[in-house]
Write a protein that binds this DNA or RNA. Structure first.
Lengths: 246, 246
DNA sequence: GCTGGGAGAGGCTTA
DNA sequence: TAAGCCTTTCCCAGC
């Protein structure tokens, strides 16, 4: 395909915020938050109406080079079609050099619906929030998402003995990060209230090291059994995993 | 475009591991790690030779629905072209229903070069590893074996007073996570060696709360000044940020 | 605008 | 295979 034609097609499409696809042999240079060089090869350039700019190889989900909210400019240099994406804050530039183009076409896209997702962490929290006796008898919610200066806990509750309980819900296997995160909230709350604060971590699983760290911090782990149905999610059960006494 | 033709084009392209692009009006259903429903709209389906499967809207960098390493199957149901992506471990399925297709084409992609990235965290570590006196006079790296055996800090060194120093390098502004991460290493090392262990956090910046937490944990923060040049990165300077005495 | 944190995170490396 | 961690993470909600 002729590079000059391709340039015209793109320039017009940018104005109309169409979805643009270019396939051809190209190289690319990025400079900004990092820097990169991509040598010649067949790639697909995907440009979207909101300025999303992505160079895709024929592998992996993610683009090999990309920019969000970019301003685009095309030009011809040395018999190549150059597509430049630029951005301020942070200052970035991505330059693609097409030596040949197999395909270049743009489409108007009519799309008013966004995806509805079920089984997110937030949804699990909501399912739990209503009835914490699932977790432990006498546990009553105080307020959801109480904000601290350092982040927040998913649920704050009070147990039957009047102790504050911070509850963190994870939809995936809990890792060291999750334990550290909850520990930070626990420490912060302890300092605020100047009394004992329980920390409860709910997750479908936990890694071995994370469990050790949780035990070390006095964080209680509960196995959260849930299923993703459609169009929602359902808590099937919650079981406390006691610290193994050595 | 005729749906039956599109089906043939795709079936053939899957066998040849080509890059496939389909544009048309579709809806989609996902079930697996979570569940989702996407109502009708114009979208682009991008399928790659390695089984990467992505439904793109005309906005955002990321696909609205996707699957990696998927097995693909096409079929026709009720006058719709159905493209099904499935996977085991974890068990997932993504079904796309095209009611109409504007475009469907596949390309053989010749591409042997991958991107070379400069300014990664690992590269910064390597630049530092050679000469720690940048950070503090008398700081010397410990044996590489120790680094590998433990494997949980970027760099392990010894200061002029013979104390073990754990050094964590971050290429971006250090957050609470970074501080927690380094603190975990510090605690672990303390328990192993049963003596004082210094923890040094090197980053271009640090958030306010992260700095407070670092101070609280006795983690020392150093401002790391580097620049991304081409084709590499360069450490420009390292300056210790003392705890502000209130 | 910055900060914190989730994500169906993805993707890589090492044990 | 699992765990841990980096990413030009992306993306969003709060402040």
């Amino acid at each position: 395909m002729d590079l000059t034609i391709a340039k015209q097609v793109l320039d017009n499409a940018f104005r109309q915020k169409q979805l643009c696809m270019v396939i051809g042999n190209c190289k690319a240079e990025y400079w900004g938050r990092a820097a990169s060089k991509l040598s010649e090869g067949d790639r697909m350039l995907l440009i979207k109406g909101d300025g999303s700019f992505a160079i895709h190889q024929n592998k992996l989900l993610r683009p090999v080079n990309y920019m969000m909210s970019a301003s685009m400019k095309t030009s011809q240099e040395n018999g190549q079609l150059v597509v430049l994406a630029e951005k301020l804050k942070p200052k970035e530039s991505l330059k693609v050099f097409f030596s040949s183009i197999d395909f270049c076409q743009c489409f108007e896209m009519h799309d008013i619906h966004d995806v509805r997702l079920f089984g997110s962490e937030k949804q699990l929290q909501e399912l739990l929030g209503d009835d914490l006796s699932f977790i432990e008898p006498g546990l009553t919610p105080l307020k959801r998402e109480a904000h601290f200066e350092q982040g927040f806990a998913d649920i704050i509750a009070e147990d039957s003995k009047g102790r504050i309980c911070l509850i963190e819900v994870k939809r995936r296997k809990a890792s060291l990060d999750a334990v550290s995160q909850l520990h930070r909230y626990q420490q912060k709350m302890k300092n605020l209230k100047n009394k004992e604060v329980r920390a409860l971590l709910l997750a479908p699983e936990i890694t071995e090291n994370a469990k050790l760290l949780a035990d070390n911090y006095g964080i209680e782990f509960f196995k959260l059994d849930f299923e993703i149905s459609n169009p929602s999610a359902k808590i099937k059960g919650i079981e406390k995993k006691q610290t193994t006494l050595v």
